[in-house]
Design a protein around this nucleic acid. Structure first.
Lengths: 175, 175
DNA sequence: AGCCCCATGTAACAAGTTACATGATTGG
DNA sequence: CCAATCATGTAACTTGTTACATGGGGCT
């Protein structure tokens, strides 16, 4: 195919290396494996799959119950995946609406701001705890450091964010 | 307007509190003020501006040289902004393609991976340095802690990411 | 058998990105 | 005064989100 893969489509091809899967399955796989730093939705997945089927990168297998259709990787798909993987990855993008609210905080009564901040802090604390547990489990299951790098990214990120929350000035936290 | 504002549009309204600006100006303002954690493009800005003009949240002033058109906030716009600001901000989203590459690294020759990692590390080191300088300048110019919270977010983020880079196992860094 | 919930997919919409067009300015 | 560059905007496309549709399987 002429038009180069996007990251979402490429990761689908990556997952299909482990055998054919339906769109629905792929969503689950992706959530489990890269969901911490790469979100995708069913709609996207189906769109990419049918586009890639059109381009010959995957083939649809015969359809099962309720129109379920698994896709298998083709050789072209394997090649496209490798080509994508060999390109320098783009910069990350972060969008954090809470920071917008903070940036415009002078237009907001102080109490509401503090409540928002507290809610978000709680979410991050919970995520951090989740990552820690995940990491412990993975280690117990024999994971090597190299298998933990993406999880570790999440860990360090959440630690940093939590540290930031805890260092916020009282005007913001309502202290 | 019935349909509730999105964060990008809302921040435009926020900036317009300081006086009328054209789309072009707004892009610059946004880049300077929230660009570290909220990216937007000219196209978006123009689209939101004309939509908001249609909804009466802003009014276009008479057009200057090369079709330049400044927009001013209306009372409805002010109200819509406040309403937006009072809603609980959504979770952040992060998408880091490098982490995808890492997640699929077993399909990639080790040397290439190390090069990608090194490039990204350099970018983050530079950003961290930039933030530090910015912070020092802001402090020198009399900024209070509350004025630095979004910048501090960036700082802590970059510190964390750099720490993560420096803790990567040798399989990844090529060490 | 009937009902409810889950699995699976699609379609419509909104937001974000890339590429392009064109009119001012300004330095040589 | 010409050429190069910057300012400003628009159009086309891609990606991401929300809402909806529907068929099967399990539970009573």
């Amino acid at each position: 195919m002429a038009t180069t893969l996007n990251a979402t489509a490429a990761s689908l091809l990556g997952f299909l290396h482990d055998g054919p899967q339906s769109g629905y399955d792929l969503v689950g796989t992706a959530e489990r494996s890269i969901g911490n730093f790469w979100s995708l939705t069913r709609s996207q997945v189906y769109r990419e799959l049918s586009a890639m089927a059109g381009a010959g990168l995957v083939v649809a297998q015969e359809t099962g119950p309720r129109d379920r259709r698994a896709y298998a990787l083709t050789d072209d798909g394997r090649a496209a995946f490798r080509a994508w993987l060999a390109r320098p990855p783009a910069e990350e993008q972060i969008r954090y609406p809470l920071l917008l609210t903070l940036a415009f905080a002078r237009h907001l009564p102080a109490g509401e701001l503090a409540a928002f901040v507290a809610q978000h802090r709680a979410v991050h604390a919970a995520r951090l705890a989740g990552y820690r547990r995940e990491r412990a489990e993975a280690l117990a299951a024999g994971a090597r450091p190299v298998d933990l790098v993406t999880l570790d990214f999440g860990l360090r990120y959440e630690e940093a964010v939590l540290g930031w929350f805890d260092a916020l000035p009282p005007e913001v936290t309502g202290g």
